[in-house]
């Protein structure tokens, strides 16, 4: 009876022991099943999973210390499978993240390039605007400068023109004054000439009636008759026309200045000039003779200017 009791006790003890070992084994089995059903670890650590499964299944045939060690090693295989799967999963996740990062970096590069292009375009536009602004400013400055130069030139020209006009006006004024003076002088001279001509008187000489024209009827040093003398020759013509049947001799005389030859030629030319004037006034040329006496027959002293003036003369003689 005692042996039976001992047998029953021993059987119970071993049953409890086996139940405990089976509990650990079932715990491992459940952990393994949970692990292999996780979707994210399914593609990974297949060899390690197989090792873990074999190690766990082997535990069903083990007992005691061997089984304790087997449990430990089975857990090791399960843990190794889990960590290998986790490692592979992480590596894939890392690769995937790296790929996403590369994609984002590529997009970033494109965006940066696009922005850089925009910046470059904007900078180019700004440069162009600045260049245009600078060019416009330069042109405005150039225009202003040209305008200023033009105004300065115009001012200078105006000043110059004004000065020229003033000078011209002054010159004109002088000319006018001179002209007036000359006119006055001419008028006075003409008037004097006219008065002299009108005051001419005939003088009876041996050769006939003689009228003496002073050298005032000639231009100085010339044989040309003054226009005023020509215009006022009426008195002379009246004198001549009073004796239409008489021939006329015209004698030219000079002072002693200069050479005799020159004086003779000058006197002859002056006599010829008067002859031509008479002809122009209707006197027949046949009636007229003109000779140059030179300085041979002075009527006054040649030592004074007054005497010389008297010696320079043309005598119109109505011959008897």
């Amino acid at each position: 009876m005692k042996k039976i009791v001992v047998l029953v006790v021993l059987t119970g003890f071993f049953s409890v022991l086996i139940a405990k070992e089976n509990l650990e084994l079932e715990s491992l089995r459940i952990e393994f099943d949970n692990f292999i059903t996780q979707q994210k670890y399914k593609p990974y650590a297949k060899a390690e999973k197989a090792q873990a499964k074999a190690a766990i299944e082997a535990l069903y045939n083990q007992r005691g210390e061997v089984k304790n060690h087997g449990v430990y090693m089975a857990r090791y295989h399960l843990t190794k499978a889990k960590m290998t799967a986790e490692s592979a999963y992480l590596e894939d996740a890392l690769k995937e993240t790296e790929a996403h990062l590369q994609t984002v970096n590529m997009q970033t590069l494109k965006a940066e390039a696009q922005l850089a292009r925009m910046e470059a375009d904007r900078a180019q536009l700004l440069i162009k605007l600045h260049a245009e602004e600078a060019e416009r400013a330069r042109q405005e400055k150039q225009t202003a400068l040209e305008l200023a130069n033009q105004k300065a030139s115009e001012a200078e020209m105006t000043q110059a023109e004004l000065e020229a006009a003033q000078a011209y006006a002054k010159a004109q004024e002088k000319v006018a004054a001179l002209a007036k003076e000359e006119a006055d002088l001419a008028f006075a001279e003409i008037e004097a000439l006219r008065m002299q001509l009108e005051s001419l008187v005939a003088k009876e000489t041996d050769a006939g009636l003689m009228m003496t024209l002073g050298d005032f009827v000639f231009a100085s040093g010339s044989a040309n008759l003054k226009q005023a003398a020509v215009d006022n020759f009426d008195r002379v013509m009246q004198f001549i026309n009073n004796y239409p049947n008489r021939n006329i001799r015209i004698e030219g005389h000079t002072d002693s200045s200069g050479s005799e030859d020159l004086n003779e030629k000058l006197s002859k030319k002056r006599a010829d000039a008067v002859k031509q004037l008479l002809i122009q006034n209707g006197i027949a040329a046949e009636r007229i003779s003109a000779i140059g006496q030179g300085e041979a027959h002075p009527v006054a002293s040649n030592n004074t200017e007054a005497g010389k003036a008297k010696n320079r003369r043309v005598e119109i003689i109505l011959l008897k």
Binding site: H69, Y72, M73, Y76, T79, K80, M83, T84, E86, S87, L90, E91, A93, L94, T97, E98, H100, L101, V104
Partner: peptide, 29 residues
């Protein structure tokens, strides 16, 4: 068991390193 523990230790270090790398990479991303 010691060899197994060393293997697990290496794997844990590897996983930890990969985890850290992944965290860093995700931060970077």
């Amino acid at each position: 068991q010691i060899r197994a523990d060393m293997t697990i230790a290496r794997l844990r270090a590897e996983v930890n390193g990969l985890n850290q790398k992944l965290l860093d990479k995700r931060d970077e991303l």
